[in-house]
Structures are given as structure tokens and as C-alpha cells.
Design a binder for these strands. Structure first.
Lengths: 206, 206
DNA sequence: TACCTTATGTGACTTTGGTCACCTTTTAGC
DNA sequence: GCTAAAAGGTGACCAAAGTCACATAAGGTA
């Protein structure tokens, strides 16, 4: 059995109240950049609705998807970075329209001391992120592009509970850390082999 | 500036005492396997002396180095896994002769509640490991083998404060997630370019 | 010294994936 | 309907790295 894939912050009414008191809520549109690399962090985000994708960027502009932050989750990198007064090593982008609550770092430390559930929440998140990162390492180090691409499509489809995925090849390429031509080529091959059906802005999993 | 590269567990005498009381100390020789993939975790290791290398293994036997656990540090993966009653996703091997203190998971949770410094220690470690994992992702996703190899050799040399590295090409290949032939080839090229000097079981950085 | 074992060197070849160039298709907006 | 922008298709080519096969070399030891 897998560890719970969905980590919800089952907060007591007290914490909710505190969070609402300490935090500032902001809205983001799809594609909005929430956090840039190398920027200082002084608050941690909790995703109230929507989802965020966290990318690692290379010096020469190439990117790769690390993981998604879904509704109810927080960005653990921010948390660590914030606590140790470090800069962000990743970029966070709104995957869809999202509502995010920002909690100042000092308040976070405070909450940890006061509410043990909060600490548990953070440990769970860490654990999840760590495993996701290991999966990325695994994929990049040992898997071929076609397998990674197919896995990625499957995962995305599972997430939206649909057989249709609405993305461009360019987007897929970015998230997998490669280029459009490669994705197009592999997708065509996959279509030929009967794994998918292609359309403009659309991939149907068979 | 970088965040402190050396994370020491500056424990109060009280914690040291508790640790000695709760923990079991074991010795490992170079190459001993401390933790296998998929094994259940019921205690977390603290490295008293020596160092451990943590590897990720693929289903078909290929491996890649994730990071080292040095003296004074703990294995954060174990900690998370242990707390959530999960199995290990990584393999840990003694890099040299090492002395390790194993603390049962229940006691760890207890210590966290009692001693805030301990929590801080854990957060620091997490942060460090996270950044190291990001570096691995970066390297594997975007760097070419020759660059990775040279970086790896440099890092190893820094660690031992020497210009000589005593490893076989086979070992290097394992840690970088490739095969011996590739390493030999690249090393020869690097020797030709004057970056290193090669010997049997020995690489000298110039 | 003779004989293994382990480590390394290397040529030949293949696969994967990145690069370039240019074409075709689709769609939104006028 | 016309047109530009965006998305996708494709051939040609190249470099990196994995695979295979076999040749050497360096040390250890009976």
C-alpha cells in the first residue's frame, strides 16, 4: 500500500483561525509566477484552491518539473528556505487559477511550537516531497524519454480523472526537461503504436 | 553565502544522555550495507563517526548516488519513513569504517516534543538533503557526463583534502549512474586534456 | 616465476535525444 | 473569407552515451 497520496491539513478550528489572522490571501491566474528562483522567502504559501507546479531551472534556461502542490498543501521548500533565511532554489507557477494563503515565517515557527498537529502536517509533506523528488531522480537518471512521457501523460490524466489531456507539446517538453521536437516525435510514435490519439492541444489516452 | 555546509548536532548534555540511553550503537566496515531498499524502518541512525553514502537503486540494478551522511548527521529519509511507518526508498552503505547510533522511532518523537533544538536539527538536515537532491536532479537532467564526472572527482577530493582519489572506474560509474566503459573513456579524455592523471585505483587531480 | 584476478584501454557499432530548417495545419480575430 | 499566430510534423544530421568484444596491464600469491 502507498502512503496517503492526499495530504490534507486537518486543522483544528483554532489553527484555522490563527492562519486566517496571520495570513494574507492572494489570487493567481494560470501561468502566474508565484515564486522565482533566488528570491528571498519571508512567508510560506498554503494552497487554498487550485494547484501550483514547482520547477527547477538550469542556468541556461532549461526547466524540469519537480512536483505539484495541490489544494491543502504547502511549499516545503519555502518553509525550509524561510526558516533558514535562504533563497529559493525553485520556481513556482500557478497551474490553474489558484487561491493562496501566505503565512509569515515568524508565525509559522510560532504555530509549530503551539500546535503539534501542524508539525505532523509538515513532516508528512516533507516525506511526500522527498519521495516525489526521488521519483524524478529515478526517471531522469534511468528512464528513456518515451517511457517518461507516457507516464507523465498517464499521471496527468489520473489527476483530472479524464482520458483527455489539454496541453501543447511545448508544455510537455518543458515539464520533462526536453524540447518540443522530441516530444512531437515520440508522441507520433506513440500514436502509431496505439497508445494515444493526438489532436491540437489535446492528447487522448487509449 | 551558502548555508552552513556542516550541520552538527549541538546537543545539550541532557539530549546526549537521552540518546545514549535510548540508542544502540553499532559498527560498520567499509562497504557494509546499513539499510536496504524496501526494508521497514524502526529506528533512525545517527552517524557518530565515519560516513554513509545513500544510493537510489533502479529496478534493473542501476544505482545513483544521492548524498553522503557525514559524522554528526542523521538519515532524514529514515526519519520520515519511520515516522510514517513506510519502507525505505533508498540504500545506505558505509563509505568507510563507521560508528552509528540507532534511536528507536518512538523515542525520536518523544525527543522532538521535549527538546526544540532537536527539531531544529532535523529541519536543518531536511533542508540540506533537499538541496542536495535538487543538485542531483540538476546534474542528471542537464549536465553531460564529463562535467558530472569531473565535478564528482573534485568534490571527493575536497572532502578528503587531497589531490588523490583512490577509486576504481567501476565505483565511479556506479555512483554516477552509468557504466565503467563510459567512465574509462571520459577519464582518458580528461587525462589527455590535462585535468587529471590516472593510475590503477587512483586518480590525481591536477 | 607462473598464474590468477582485478582493473583498465579501446575500436566498432547502435540508440537516444538534441539541433536545424522548413513545411503544414489549425484557429482566433479582423 | 483572409491572415497572422500558434501548434504540430518531419527529414537530415550530430553528439553523447550505452553495448559488445577483446586486448592489456598491474598486483597478489601459491
Amino acid at each position: 500500500m502507498e502512503i496517503d497520496n492526499f495530504i490534507e491539513f486537518k486543522s483544528s478550528p483554532q489553527i484555522r483561525e490563527k492562519l486566517a489572522e496571520y495570513g494574507i490571501s492572494k489570487s493567481f491566474k494560470e501561468g502566474d509566477i508565484i515564486l522565482k528562483e533566488n528570491s528571498y522567502i519571508n512567508s510560506i504559501p498554503i494552497v487554498k484552491s487550485g494547484s501550483i507546479r514547482v520547477m527547477r531551472t538550469d542556468e541556461d534556461g532549461r526547466e524540469i518539473l519537480l512536483y505539484y502542490i495541490k489544494s491543502g498543501e504547502s511549499c516545503i521548500m519555502s518553509f525550509l528556505g524561510g526558516i533558514h533565511n535562504d533563497t529559493s532554489k525553485v520556481k513556482a507557477i500557478a497551474e490553474e487559477e489558484s487561491e493562496i494563503l501566505f503565512i509569515p515565517i515568524e508565525k509559522v515557527s510560532l504555530l509549530i511550537k503551539e500546535y503539534p498537529e501542524w508539525l505532523d502536517y509538515i513532516f508528512r509533506l516533507y516525506h511526500k516531497r522527498f519521495e516525489e523528488l526521488l521519483e524524478v531522480v529515478n526517471a531522469v537518471a534511468f528512464k528513456k524519454m518515451d517511457e517518461r512521457l507516457l507516464n507523465f501523460i498517464k499521471k496527468k490524466c489520473e489527476l483530472t480523472m479524464s482520458h483527455n489531456l489539454y496541453v501543447t507539446h511545448e508544455q510537455l517538453a518543458k515539464e520533462l526537461g526536453t524540447v518540443r521536437v522530441v516530444v512531437s516525435r515520440l508522441l507520433k510514435q506513440m500514436e502509431f503504436e496505439g497508445h494515444v490519439k493526438l489532436g491540437r492541444n489535446k492528447i487522448t489516452l487509449l
